[in-house]
Design a protein around this nucleic acid. Structure first.
Length: 456
RNA sequence: GGUGGAGUGGCUGAGCGGCCCAAAGCAGCAGCCUGCAAAGCUGUAAAACCACGGGUUCAAAUCCCGUCUCCACCUCCA
């Protein structure tokens, strides 16, 4: 069954067909490593991880997921200067923070190219654009180089806009000819460290943001690749500009464009400039990384997702229900695509309708629980649920190592409580229950035995 | 001004012409289990008049027209 994806360039649902059969090149715009990640970054990462994962597991495609790292930019330099650290050190440490979070969410990319490793590619691309008549060095004699938006008649094709309706920059700024012309190369500034400037034919400086992605997609995926993704807020100007300069350079560029919806707080976009970002620490304090992933998947990737503490706790409860079933109905089966229910496959192939796919999981969980309650085998349901969780990268983690001493202590307390209960000394049993609780452990009584687990 | 998106039960959120008197989850309620709880499991109510007003159709939450409200992008942003 074919995979249909919403292409945001043509604004239509299109059947996905890779350029090279069996292989997919997927490029997603990653973070500018200027400060710690917020929830919006997570959503984008998870959305495209689901896409890549589904292409692999559901369709057997060999996917290369590329997520770039913008590791030199105005804000990185500014933030570094503010705290008195070397901008490169800041970039490295922030990036590490991103990687830790991506890893905990099961949303790592296959390749993570860094802008600073591709400066030569960018310079070459800018030279090429100048030679083709699509770019020019600034009229004010600086090292700035701009893309000539008027030289490319298709400019605006991605977002369906016309040049004359765009607001653009101030006309006269930095030697550009038109407000809509954008920087390909930015002249080094007096107050910036020399380490942030590279030699170029136009003078020392650094690349503009947009050219980075054009150069890196070309370097890693080639001039014609399958899918370009990113957050909805990057459509314009970033992706529009990438598309224009790449096409003007003669590349075919991306076959499909995909944009994930934004995360909002109280209906308003979460963003750095509004300062309403929810930090990862704040988020992870409310639920496990997997629960956060579940929450991020609870709305379709193209719609906006509103953050609230109750939304997270809903996700915690919903995921726990699924995981409880997995615990309750253990199966030796390996997650296999063959075990995926047809409804699940249909949902995923319909532009990654993950909310509907999650509903299928819950239906099977309920059916499986009913079978178990009736004393029957739920092996089929269990293997289906396992496969679906695998498809969404939501499988429960192997339980963490528990301190031996603590384990012994808890076990002996549970035994003592069992003895007390057997002797009908419920006052003592309740007291022991409180002791166990004080150790940060939750116990659960079932018909035959008492199980326990660490809180949180 | 330009370009897009959204408005579905208490909340979240699918559905986008008939399978919808609308999936799924959360919350609520009831039952099972329990010494009592918690946790777990099962079941389930409510007028969901599908933003509002028209229209097309044998058939509309779904298509068309109009209106209202909200959001995003056009400056850095996932």
């Amino acid at each position: 069954m074919s995979l249909n994806l919403f292409d945001s360039k043509t604004q239509s649902l299109r059947e996905f067909s890779p350029i090279v059969p069996g292989r997919v090149g997927l490029y997603v715009c990653g973070p500018t490593v200027q400060s710690a990640p917020h929830v919006g970054h997570l959503r984008s990462a998870v959305a495209f991880d689901v896409l890549a994962g589904w292409m692999r597991f559901g369709h057997g495609l060999n996917v290369t997921l590329v997520r770039n790292v913008t590791d030199v930019d105005d804000k990185i330099l500014a933030n570094a200067a503010l705290t008195g650290v070397d901008w490169r050190a800041l970039a490295v440490s922030v990036e590490q923070g991103f990687n830790d979070v991506y890893a905990s969410l099961n949303a790592l990319a296959d390749k993570t190219p860094h802008a600073t490793d591709h400066i030569i590619d960018m310079i070459a691309l800018v030279e090429w654009l100048i030679s083709r008549g699509h770019a020019y060095q600034a009229d004010d004699g600086s090292a700035n180089v701009f893309f000539d938006s008027a030289s490319w008649p298709e400019y605006g094709e991605l977002t369906n806009q016309r040049l004359e309706h765009m607001e653009g920059e101030d006309v006269a700024s930095h030697g550009r000819r038109r407000p809509t012309d954008f920087a390909l190369w930015k002249a080094a500034k007096e107050d910036e460290p020399s380490s942030a400037a590279w030699t170029s034919p136009w003078g020392d400086g650094r690349p503009g943001w947009h050219i980075e992605c054009s150069a890196m997609t070309r370097s890693i995926l080639g001039e014609h690749f399958d899918i370009h993704g990113g957050g909805l807020d990057l459509r314009f100007p970033h992706h529009e500009n990438e598309l224009a300069q790449s096409r003007a350079a003669g590349f075919e560029f991306a076959n499909y464009w995909m944009h994930n919806g934004l995360v909002t707080v109280g209906g308003q976009k979460m963003s750095k400039s509004l300062g309403n970002g929810v930090s990862v620490e704040e988020l992870f304090a409310q639920g496990s990384a997997l629960a956060v992933r579940y929450w991020l998947l609870s709305a379709h990737y193209r719609t906006s997702l509103d953050y609230s503490t109750s939304a997270i706790s809903d996700a915690v409860a919903a995921l726990a229900r699924i995981h409880n079933f997995v615990k309750r109905a253990p199966t030796d089966a390996q997650a296999s695509a063959a075990a995926l229910p047809a409804d699940f496959v249909t949902a995923m192939n319909s532009d990654l309708n993950v909310p509907a796919a999650l509903a299928v999981i819950h239906e099977h969980v309920r059916a499986g629980n009913s079978l178990l309650d009736a004393g029957q085998s739920a092996a089929n349901e269990a293997s289906a649920v396992l496969a679906m969780l695998h498809a969404l990268n939501l499988l429960p983690e192997a339980s963490a190592e528990v301190d031996k001493q603590l384990a012994d202590r808890v076990e002996s307390l549970i035994q003592a409580r069992a003895d007390a209960r057997a002797a009908k000394d419920f006052a003592l049993a309740d007291q022991i229950r409180q002791e166990i609780s004080a150790l940060g452990v939750t116990i659960e009584d079932t018909a035959t035995k008492t199980t326990w687990s660490l809180n949180g």
